[in-house]
C-alpha cells in the first residue's frame, strides 16, 4: 500500500505509466467502466474545493466505483474537534481509498500515517497538490506529444503559486526543458524552488515582460495575480495588466502554443481567447479526470 502526498512520491517511470494508463482509458473507456466495482473512494474535503472534489468523484464513478465523504469541515466530525488521526482511522474502515483536502499543510501526511488504506493529497493549503501536477503533465503530453524539449513559460504569481512550484519540480526531470519565469519583481519564484533548476542545470530566465518572450514559448502556464499579494494598491494597478493574456499578446505567439491555467481564472486570460485553438485550460479539466482515474487504479492495484 502506498500514499501520494507530493509529486516527488512518484518516479518519472511511474508518472509515464500513469500517463500511458490515462491515454488508454481515454481510448477505451468501456474497458474500465467496471474496474473499481464494489470499491469506495472517500473524499474528505476539510476545505471546500468543488472543482477538485468533483474531478475525483467523477473519476471514481467512471471506474464503476462509489464515493462517500464530506465537502467541508463543518459537515464532518472535525467540527466537533476530532483529530485527523481519529477521522482517518474511522474512514479507513469504510473506504478503500482516501482523497483528502485540508487547509493546513501536512495534514495528508498525518492521514497517511494512520490510514490503513491509500491516501491521496488533494491539496494541503499552499503546500502540495500532486494531482494538479499530474493533470498538467498529462495535458502537456497530450497537447505537445512529448514532455521534454520545449520552452515552458510560467506567468503571474510565481511566489505563492504552488502549482507552478510543483510543475517546475516535475518538468525539471525531463530532458531539454527550458523555463521562462514571467512575474512582477514582488512575485518572483522563491530561491528554494530554483534548487532543482540549478542542480539539474536546467536553463531558465526571469523576466517581468510577457510580451517580449511570447514568440519563444511552447507552453504558457498562466496563474492569477491576486490583489492581496501586494503591499499597496498602486503597485497592483500598475502591474496587473502586464500579466493579463490578451488577443494582442497572443498574436505574437507560436501557432502551436498551449495556454494552460489551473483554474479558476478571474481576469488573467481575456474571454476572447477561449475561442482560440491554443486555449488548453478547459481541456485540462477533462485530462484531470483521466489522470485521477489512472492514479486510483494504481493505488487500488486494479489490473484492467
Amino acid at each position: 500500500m502506498r500514499h501520494i502526498t507530493a509529486i516527488s512520491d512518484l518516479s518519472v517511470q511511474e508518472i509515464d505509466a500513469l500517463i500511458m494508463k490515462a491515454r488508454d482509458i481515454m481510448a477505451n473507456p468501456g474497458r474500465y467502466q467496471e474496474a473499481c466495482r464494489h470499491k469506495k473512494l472517500a473524499t474528505l474535503f476539510y476545505e471546500p474545493s468543488t472543482r477538485t472534489r468533483l474531478s475525483f468523484e467523477a473519476a471514481m464513478y467512471e471506474l464503476g466505483g462509489q464515493v462517500l465523504g464530506f465537502s467541508q469541515a463543518e459537515a464532518s466530525s472535525a467540527a466537533k474537534g476530532e483529530s485527523v488521526a481519529d477521522t482517518i482511522r474511522t474512514i479507513s474502515c469504510y473506504a478503500d481509498l482516501i482523497a483528502m483536502r485540508h487547509h493546513k499543510e501536512g495534514a495528508p501526511t498525518v492521514a497517511a500515517h494512520y490510514a490503513t488504506v491509500p491516501v491521496i493529497n488533494a491539496g494541503d493549503g499552499g503546500h502540495n497538490h500532486p494531482t494538479q501536477t499530474l493533470t498538467d503533465l498529462l495535458t502537456i503530453q497530450m497537447e505537445k506529444g512529448r514532455l521534454g524539449n520545449m520552452t515552458v513559460g510560467l506567468c503571474g504569481d510565481l511566489k505563492f503559486g504552488r502549482t507552478v512550484h510543483s510543475l517546475i519540480e516535475a518538468m525539471c526531470r525531463y530532458p531539454g526543458v527550458r523555463f521562462v519565469l514571467i512575474s512582477p519583481e514582488e512575485l518572483k519564484v522563491p530561491s528554494y524552488v530554483k534548487i532543482p533548476l540549478k542542480q539539474g542545470q536546467v536553463p531558465y530566465e526571469q523576466t517581468t515582460d510577457l510580451q517580449s518572450v511570447m514568440p519563444r514559448l511552447d507552453i504558457l502556464y498562466m496563474t492569477r495575480v491576486q490583489r492581496e499579494r501586494f503591499f499597496n494598491e498602486d503597485d497592483y494597478i500598475r502591474l496587473k495588466d502586464s500579466y493579463i493574456l490578451t488577443p494582442a499578446k497572443l498574436e505574437l505567439a507560436k501557432p502551436d502554443l498551449s495556454v494552460m491555467h489551473p483554474l479558476p481564472r478571474v481576469n488573467e486570460i481575456a474571454l476572447a481567447i477561449d475561442q482560440d485553438p491554443r486555449a488548453t485550460y478547459f481541456k485540462q479539466t477533462l485530462y484531470g479526470k483521466y489522470i485521477r482515474m489512472a492514479l486510483i487504479l494504481m493505488l487500488l492495484e486494479v489490473q484492467a
Binding site: 493546513k104 499543510e105 498525518v110 499552499g126
Partner: peptide, 13 residues
Amino acid sequence: RNPRCITSIEQEL
C-alpha cells in the same frame, strides 16, 4: 513555527 502547519491546530501531534 509555521502557522499554516497541521501541528498548529492538532496539539497532540
